[in-house]
Design a protein around this nucleic acid. Structure first.
Lengths: 214, 214, 214, 214
DNA sequence: CATGAATGAGGCTTCATTCAT
DNA sequence: GATGAATGAAGCCTCATTCAT
């Protein structure tokens, strides 16, 4: 933000270079996001992004070395969002917890829409594929460790294969947005959460979550 | 080589046009499949496919109107495979059933590899996206109907949301191949099957599947 | 050459693929040569060369990977021509010999005109610069060895620095075409040859070239 | 730094506009010279020159209408240097004279390095080509007139073609720097001078230059 | 005056598709 | 039918030059 913004109201609008530039950069990012998610990555050209952002083609290249770099900038720090959040089971009501996590996750996904671009690129961009792969492993490890904690407390099915459950949870999260896309209806996150919980907890635990975790 | 080649010696070599043509067509399809799954759809050119199939560029266009059509021909009748098979629960051992279904599913996927091409195209090819969507709905309906049958027989959790479970099963099937890709290890289909079964059946049913269904 | 060319005269003109292709390649080379020498290398675009050759832009890239490669193809085996020929002094009349060598050299240069393109590229294309440098050393060595032979026969100035003379001869050859360009008149090669001979031979040798060399 | 900076301490720093401007202009010229000679004219961008000179891109265009004009400013008054100096034969030792002229010439050339840029532009810039051409004619005329003077004094070969000799001298001067570039060694200017003198003077003159010219 | 962001024409190159042979 | 050369539209990117601040 400009130093001057907190000055007198009504002053002649002055936006310093950097901020203007940042605005253009942001406009380009936003245009890129919109076009990528609308038409697909390959079918979007740098020229189009620039035009959509209201700048000349050359301006695109002032801010991004190429289309890929713009995409990377869009994905930066967002990758983990596409996968799944780490659940914390220390909660008296895992169903509600998961339901809210799911909802938040789907909202995040749909906010940027970038998750729809990923599949298109992963087959061609091995670097990015590796990054995603690594992120998935990270998330998987986190979920696994969460599961271990409750498993040690005897809260789960006794013969639970934690690795498989963790992976299943991750998959259901990653694809949770597709349900709405498919049916056109609003997703019932609570029901999804119940299904997930059933994979983990025996009914007597679910029905009466132990007080010591509250 | 044609089946007819081992016919009478000295006979004028006669391979019906259609058969030769079909060979070329098949070669093109196979080359397309290999290159699409290897390098991605967009990054594969018609020329490359033709070269890989050992025919001229122009020949490609005799058999296929364009690259997209070749892909469609490849996908033809295969789309359902990418999604999930319809399970039949009338079986004394649902875990084994699902495990074998899962394994067969993953083998099918990896056999053609075409499921890796789909994500790349769906964002651009709305027609195909619709086809896939329709297929998914079909599969979903089938799984749902299967679930209904066992639900009516009181074999499942009483408060099961069949729709959500059907969808979850479908997602886990659709993505089952990713686990191997991620971990590099062989997938334990039995454990995955157990997880899925847990979503459906209460333990007492699972442990002792009723005889009347055998 | 086509198999059909030795067939009946008057047959429908059929030029096989390869030959046609070679014609296009030659047309592109010739167009490249003309445009390079006319407008300069940098100021000539691949598109222009293609247009001048009467083909589409893409055709250019079927025959040449880029502009540089076309130039290299033009220069191939011509580089030595731009420098200087190796004189053979075993001749009863070195002036006439040099005069004819000079004339032939200038004719060669002006035939292709490519020597005018070289200076433009040498500063940017270090690979080519090295090739030229090597060629110059080769020529220099040849001239030097020629000079040594006549020096050993006591035909030259006694205190001749052969290296410097060889180099001077090479420079005068390399630049001989510029005289015509500058004055607009026809060059008097004989006078130039006399000047060169003066650098090498004392007058009594020049006036009466020894018989044993005839 | 300005000459005025060492003036009175505490004085308001006053550097006249023109002087500052001249500093920038000089910096741009110097940066242009360095980059042109290093990377070639076409491969140097205005932005680069400005950056190298530590000014903004736009500033470049305040001082020079374009890249070409900067080059012209660099060449201004230097063109004659690239060609050859006018020798004055009224000297008791023409070899030494020419040797020192040659050395001075090569030093001048290498000082700016701009002679390496010329070839690149001549093919495209007909105006400059004409300027150079004119300069060459001027130099040629001067050398010719020098030669005439000594020719009239019977100091030269009797059958000297003055025009050709003048032109040869000019060529050897113009290209004298190349010898060092090629061999990597230091040039022996004296030997070069001897070669040139041999083109002009008969041995008895060279060995015993007449006193009346001293 | 200085700045450097913005412009957009223009060069390079690829590739889906056509078509003469 | 088969061939593969030819096409040219379209994408990528650079850079000389302008202009608002």
């Amino acid at each position: 933000m400009s130093d001057r913004e907190d000055q007198l109201v009504g002053e002649f609008p002055f936006i310093p270079r950097q901020e203007r530039a940042q605005q253009k950069r942001k406009a380009l990012l936003e245009s890129g996001r919109i076009l990528f998610t609308t038409k697909g990555y390959e079918h979007t050209t740098a020229k189009e992004i620039a035009a959509h952002a209201g700048v000349a083609t050359g301006t695109f290249y002032r801010y991004f070395s190429d289309k890929r770099q713009l995409l990377m900038a869009l994905l930066e720090d967002k990758i983990d969002q596409f996968l799944a959040p780490e659940p914390h089971w220390f909660c008296h009501d895992p169903v509600s917890l998961l339901a809210s996590l799911l909802e938040a996750h789907v909202l995040r996904l749909n906010h940027s829409g970038l998750h729809r671009v990923l599949p298109e690129i992963l087959s061609k961009d091995l670097d990015l594929a590796e990054v995603i792969q690594a992120a998935r492993k990270r998330i998987h490890a986190k979920i696994l460790s969460s599961l271990k904690q409750i498993h040690e407390k005897n809260l789960t099915w006794r013969d639970l294969d934690l690795d498989t459950v963790a992976w299943s949870i991750m998959m259901l999260f990653e694809n949770s947005h597709k349900k709405a896309e498919q049916t056109g209806e609003k997703v019932n996150y609570r029901e999804m959460a119940k299904v997930i919980c059933r994979m983990i907890f025996p009914p007597h635990i679910l029905d009466n979550f132990p007080d010591e975790l509250k």
